[in-house]
Design a protein around this nucleic acid. Sequence first.
DNA 1: CGCGTCACCTAACGGGCGTTTGGTTTGTCC
DNA 2: GGACAAACCAAACGCCCGTTAGGTGACGCG
Lengths: 217, 217
Amino acid sequence: MTDSSSPPPAPAAPPAAPTKPRREQIHEVASRLFSERGYHATSMRDLAGQLGMQGGSLYAHIASKDELLIGIVDRAARQFDGALFTLRGDSLPAPEKIREAMHRHIRVVADNMESATVFFHEWKHLSPEAYTRVTNWRDTIDAFYRDLVIQGIKEGSLRPDLDPKMTANLILSAVNWAYTWYRPGGSMTPRDVAEQYADMLLTGLQAAPVSAGPERP
Amino acid sequence: MTDSSSPPPAPAAPPAAPTKPRREQIHEVASRLFSERGYHATSMRDLAGQLGMQGGSLYAHIASKDELLIGIVDRAARQFDGALFTLRGDSLPAPEKIREAMHRHIRVVADNMESATVFFHEWKHLSPEAYTRVTNWRDTIDAFYRDLVIQGIKEGSLRPDLDPKMTANLILSAVNWAYTWYRPGGSMTPRDVAEQYADMLLTGLQAAPVSAGPERP
DNA sequence: CGCGTCACCTAACGGGCGTTTGGTTTGTCC
DNA sequence: GGACAAACCAAACGCCCGTTAGGTGACGCG
């Protein structure tokens, strides 16, 4: 609509390229369509139509439909990776670390709603190599949260009777499920969500007993 | 393998029919394939092949592929409904009610892993009427948990500073996400999962402060 | 014995799929 | 002004999809 001649290729300065426009546009629109309709329910002609071109013309920019999915999922995985693994070194107490990890995790989901949705929904349709890559990667995320809980139990900041595996499951449920309900335009920032979730998880939903007496007041 | 002549039609007693075998077999296999591969990645010929028949022969028993999906999703929704809505009348304190609702919710997921997976994954591909039906139904489930939290705050059994919407989101995250990791053959029963989750959620992950003093000992 | 019915097969239908091919336009650089 | 590449179109490729139509054998019932 606005400008039909999309990219001025910057003729004199190609070394540090300004952006790669068309290929990235395709990936972006594919993220949107795959997340809205699903991978198999999106045809290459649908995708091309949204970009104002013909189905076959896509193949001047990309190699195949599979490669598109792999690109989207890998990119999402790298986002999670980059957000969480810088935390491994930090020496915060476990509750603070859990709070911070949840914040970063939810922010990645919130900032990449479309590719995160594709990541959680369509990873089963990846080619075998990409499939096992993603599966292994998810195991390391599980382990990250599990180790975090174990550390907290050891240092005494978390309840000693916790099952680390189940605790990690619970935390992951909270942060991952966000892709189903969070809407970036709404009133809550990713930080708001993470703070509320972490508060509820760490200190519990139950009202504190009425201070003094152990039974009736 | 075992018996190839499947159903003796019980000629003298058709009034209260014994079972409807073939149609149900198709629904069961479809649940499995849809949950494993996704709706659009499962062809009617795949489905028929698993039942030892030809693609076209399915249409002697079912009307269409859409109808299959609708049947599976509706059945799953009815399971959740039946499990949760008998709780509306009970006059338990909110924490107990949350614990019980989580237990029932997880049990439905665990006892119907395949149709639950289809329910959570493929509802976007329903026909328009079934789509809005499922969407509305999910809203009532959200409201159920939200009201439960509101009741708990009113009666003083839950923290007064909770956001009911977000608290319901957290509970739903835990019980719904179970479909991604729970395996019925494993060492944990649905009750084990629910008890652990409810304990963690209600009383919190953090270790209790060192008993006596309000500040440093 | 003939009739109906059930469960299934074979074959085909129109259409959409991912992808390839060859050609046309457009714009830049020498 | 001629070479060149990028971006795209139009058309076709073989294949698979959901679904339909007509036919066939087995079986129970009057």
